[in-house]
């Protein structure tokens, strides 16, 4: 059975979805809420005078915030095609019920300025052969996200790897 789902997942490698637009443009309120929760006092994110004197010429959002802008709204519900989510459902059906995120990476290219409109695309890039870990036996699934601004400039490339596994007993 397991061989069957692995082959189906391998056939999905390279599948893409998007672009999906962020619900809000880059804005001061969301930046402030983020900084308040993180306790991040970097003046680039809040001090107009300071940020204006730098090479950015104004306030920018924390680079790591890019994904937050692109999160789907709680309402109205959006169902977006997502090859990784489909892969997860296929593995659930094959008995790999456990899930844990193992690695994520982000590389940053262009800053996010107030008013920028972000969007992202995602791509299912790899599935590992079956591996046995301390959590159980399963496969690592990796997707890549490309975030761009309204000018088509790449803001961030992100990869995200999860392990879907049959829990060890």
């Amino acid at each position: 059975m397991s061989q069957g789902v692995y082959e189906k997942l391998q056939a999905m490698i390279g599948e893409e979805a998007g672009p999906f637009e962020a619900p809000n443009e880059v804005n001061r309120a969301m930046i402030r809420h983020w900084c308040e929760a993180m306790e991040d006092g970097n003046p680039l994110y809040s001090d107009e005078k300071y940020a204006g004197s730098t090479r950015y010429g104004g306030i920018i959002a924390p680079a790591q915030m890019v994904q937050a802008y692109c999160m789907p709204p709680l309402w109205p519900k959006r169902t977006m095609p997502d090859p990784q989510a489909r892969a997860v459902r296929m593995m659930d059906e094959a008995g790999y019920h456990g899930v844990v995120a193992t690695t994520t990476s982000q590389e940053y290219f262009h800053p996010m300025r107030l008013g920028d409109r972000l969007s992202y695309k995602l791509k299912f890039v790899s599935v590992s052969p079956e591996k046995t870990t301390r959590l159980g036996t399963g496969h690592f699934l990796t997707s890549e996200y490309t975030y761009t601004n309204q000018k088509g400039e790449v803001v961030c490339l992100q990869s995200f790897t999860i392990l879907k596994f049959k829990p060890a007993v």
């Binding site: 680079a63 790591q64 844990v100 995120a101 193992t102 690695t103 994520t104 990476s105 982000q106 590389e107 940053y108």
Partner: peptide
Amino acid sequence: QLKKMVIRL
């Protein structure tokens, strides 16, 4: 300036 971040969880 943050350029790249790898996070193992």
